[in-house]
C-alpha cells in the first residue's frame, strides 16, 4: 500500500510542476493589460503605467518571475490579487468552503437518487419504470445546466416562490463563519430557523449542479448492476431461492459499487466545471465564480493561483479515489 502511495506521489510531483508552469505561462499569454484595467476609461500616463508594472514585478525576466512565484508557492504564498489587494490564498480559503458545500450536496443528491434508481431500473429491466427512469437520465445527461438553472429560477423561485433566488442564507441571520460551511455554521449559531434557511438556499443550486452526475450515476449503477446480476454466483443465489431483496442487497450491490465509486470520483472534476456555471447563475460566492470574474478582470495572481490550487485539489481527490478503489477491490492493490 505504501509503495503504491509513494509511486503515485512520484507521478504527482512532476505533474504539479507542469501544472504550475502551465498556470504561470498562460497568464503571461493573456491579451490585455491588468495595469491599464485599473483605471478603466480614465487614461493612465505611460510613466505611471511603468511604475505600477515595476511594482507588481511585471518588468522582470519571465524565468525569474516564475522561479520567484514557485518559491512563493512552496512557502504557501500564491501572490496578491491585483484588484482586491488581498492574498490569493486567503481569498481561496474564504470561498472554497462554499464550493465544497455545494458540490458535496450535489454529489449526495446524485447518489441518493441515482443509485436506487439505477438498481430498480436494473432489476425491472425493460419495464416502463426502467424506460422512464433511463429516459429521464438521458435528458439529464444532455442538459445545458446554465439554461436549466435559469429555467428553475424562473419557475420555482419566480413564479412559485418556493425557494429563495440566490445567496447562501437569509440575511436575517448573522453569525461569524466558523467552518465556512453554512449548514454547519447555522447549526452552531443556535439561531432558530437558520439551518432551515441555509437548506432552502441550497436546494436549487444542488439540483442544477447534481443533474448531470445524477444521470451518470443512475446509468452507471444500472449497467454495473446488470452485469453483476448476470453473473453465476448471483444466478445461483437466486436459484437457491433467496429473495430478490437479499440477492441484490447482499451480493450484487457490493460488487456493483466498484465502478460506481470510480464514477463518483471522476465526477469531481465535472463538478468543479459545473460549479463555474452554477455559481455564476446563482451568485454563489464560491471559487468557480471567482475564477470567471478574475479572467474577465485579468487578475493575474488570482487566475494563476486559483488554477494551481484547483488543480491540486483535483489531483488529491483523484489520489484519494485511487486509494479507496484499492481498498474496495483488493485485486488491484499493488
Amino acid at each position: 500500500m505504501l509503495r503504491f502511495l509513494l509511486g503515485r506521489l512520484a507521478v504527482l510531483i512532476p505533474t504539479f510542476i507542469g501544472v504550475s508552469i502551465i498556470a504561470f505561462s498562460f497568464i503571461r499569454l493573456l491579451p490585455g493589460d491588468p495595469v491599464a484595467l485599473l483605471s478603466g476609461e480614465r487614461v493612465m500616463s505611460p510613466e505611471r503605467h511603468a511604475e505600477i508594472s515595476a511594482e507588481l514585478g511585471f518588468d522582470r525576466p519571465i524565468v525569474i518571475q516564475y522561479l520567484d512565484y514557485l518559491w512563493g508557492v512552496v512557502r504557501g504564498d500564491f501572490g496578491t490579487s491585483i484588484v482586491t489587494k488581498k492574498p490569493v490564498v486567503d481569498q481561496f480559503f474564504e470561498l472554497f468552503p462554499a464550493t465544497v458545500e455545494l458540490s458535496l450536496c450535489a454529489i449526495v443528491f446524485a447518489i441518493v437518487l441515482g443509485v436506487p434508481a439505477g438498481i430498480v431500473a436494473a432489476i425491472k429491466r425493460g419495464s416502463f419504470a426502467d424506460q422512464a427512469m433511463m429516459g429521464t437520465a438521458l435528458v439529464g445527461f444532455s442538459m445545458p445546466i446554465f439554461w436549466w438553472g435559469l429555467l428553475l429560477i424562473m419557475l420555482v423561485s419566480g413564479m412559485l416562490g418556493w425557494t429563495p433566488v440566490s445567496g447562501r442564507i437569509s440575511l436575517m441571520f448573522y453569525f461569524p463563519p466558523v467552518t465556512g460551511f453554512m449548514l454547519i455554521d447555522s447549526l452552531l449559531s443556535g439561531q432558530a430557523g437558520a439551518f432551515k434557511s441555509a437548506v432552502s438556499h441550497l436546494i436549487l443550486p444542488t439540483i442544477v449542479l447534481g443533474t448531470i452526475p445524477l444521470a451518470v450515476i443512475a446509468r452507471q449503477t444500472r449497467s454495473a448492476m446488470l452485469e453483476v446480476l448476470s453473473e453465476d454466483y448471483v444466478r445461483t443465489a437466486r436459484a437457491k431461492g433467496l429473495s430478490t431483496f437479499r440477492v441484490v442487497g447482499v451480493h450484487a450491490l457490493r460488487n456493483a459499487m466498484i465502478p460506481v465509486v470510480t464514477t463518483v470520483g471522476l465526477q469531481v472534476g465535472v463538478m468543479l466545471a459545473g460549479a463555474i456555471l452554477t455559481e455564476t447563475i446563482f451568485s454563489w460566492p464560491g471559487i468557480g465564480k471567482w475564477m470567471v470574474d478574475s479572467v474577465s478582470r485579468r487578475d493575474y495572481a488570482v487566475i494563476q493561483g486559483g488554477l494551481l490550487m484547483i488543480a491540486a485539489v483535483i489531483m488529491l481527490v483523484n489520489l484519494a479515489v485511487d486509494l479507496m478503489y484499492g481498498l474496495i477491490n483488493p485485486r488491484i492493490r499493488h
Binding site: 483605471s39 480614465r42 493612465m44 511594482e55 496578491t80 491585483i82 489587494k85
Partner: peptide, 13 residues
C-alpha cells in the same frame, strides 16, 4: 505603498 500595487488611481486621474 501599504498594499501591493497601491496606485491611488483616482487622485492621479
Amino acid at each position: 505603498k501599504y498594499v501591493t500595487g497601491a496606485s491611488w488611481e483616482y487622485a492621479a486621474g
